[in-house]
C-alpha cells in the first residue's frame, strides 16, 4: 500500500489517537469540576472581602436636583450626583410627594421608569414592578427594593441626601 511507504515517525512524536484527543475522559471531567469548585470558592471570598472591607460609598451631604416648579405632578427627572456615575430618578407622585431612587433595577440593572398615575415603577426588561412610595418590590424577578435617597424640600428647591432608615419609622415620610 502507498501509505506504508510514507514516513510515519510523527506518530511516535504524537502518540495520541484521534479518539483520545477528542474525548473528554471522566478523569478530566472530575478535575474540571474541582477547578470550577475552586473558582466558586474564590468568588465567595471576593464577595466576603468586598462586603466587609470595601462597603459601597454613601452619598455625602445634600445635592440640589431642580426646582419644584420644574417637575409637574406625575413627572420624573433623571439626575446624577456630582462625582458619581449612578443614575437616579426623582419622582413627583400624584399625591404631591417626592421620592428619589436609583434608576437601576435590582435584578439586572436595567433602567426603571415611573408609570404615571399608577404609583408603580416599572422595569421593562423583565416586567419587574416596584412601589413608587417605598421602593419595595411588588412583582417580577427583582430580589431587593430599589436603593432610595431622601428628598429634602427647601423652599422651591429640591435636594437629595443619603436615606437613613429610621427603626421606629422605616419608611420615613418626613421629607415630603
Amino acid at each position: 500500500m502507498a501509505t506504508d511507504e510514507k514516513d510515519n515517525h510523527w506518530k511516535e512524536d504524537f502518540p495520541i489517537e484521534q479518539l483520545e484527543a477528542t474525548q473528554v475522559t471522566r478523569r478530566d471531567f472530575a478535575k474540571f469540576l474541582c477547578l470550577v469548585s475552586g473558582g466558586l470558592a474564590t468568588g465567595s471570598g471576593y464577595v466576603a472581602v468586598k462586603a466587609n472591607f470595601f462597603p459601597p460609598e454613601k452619598v455625602q451631604g445634600e445635592h440640589l436636583v431642580c426646582k419644584k416648579s420644574e417637575l409637574p405632578k406625575g413627572g420624573t427627572r433623571s439626575f446624577v450626583i456630582t462625582g458619581s456615575t449612578i443614575p437616579y430618578i426623582l419622582i413627583r407622585l400624584e399625591t404631591d410627594e417626592f421620592r428619589a431612587y436609583e434608576q437601576k433595577c435590582t435584578h439586572l440593572s436595567c433602567a426603571v421608569f415611573y408609570m404615571p398615575k399608577s404609583g408603580k415603577i416599572e422595569c421593562p426588561c423583565h416586567d419587574g414592578w416596584f412601589d413608587a412610595l417605598t421602593g419595595e418590590v411588588l412583582a417580577g424577578p427583582p430580589p431587593r427594593p430599589l436603593p432610595r435617597l431622601e428628598v429634602v424640600i427647601k423652599g422651591e428647591d429640591i435636594y437629595v441626601k443619603e436615606f437613613e432608615t429610621n427603626a421606629a419609622n422605616p419608611f420615613n415620610t418626613s421629607s415630603t
Binding site: 466558586l40 470558592a41 471570598g45 464577595v47 466576603a48
Partner: peptide, 29 residues
C-alpha cells in the same frame, strides 16, 4: 447556592452571611 445567597445578602447590606458562606465554600472545595 452559597455564592448566590452571599451576593444577594451583601447587596442588600446584610453582610454577616458573606464570610461564613466563603468558609463553607472553601471547605467544600
Amino acid at each position: 447556592w452559597l455564592l448566590y445567597t452571599a451576593l444577594n445578602n451583601a447587596l442588600a447590606e446584610n453582610t454577616d452571611i458573606a464570610f461564613p458562606a466563603f468558609i463553607a465554600s472553601f471547605v467544600l472545595f
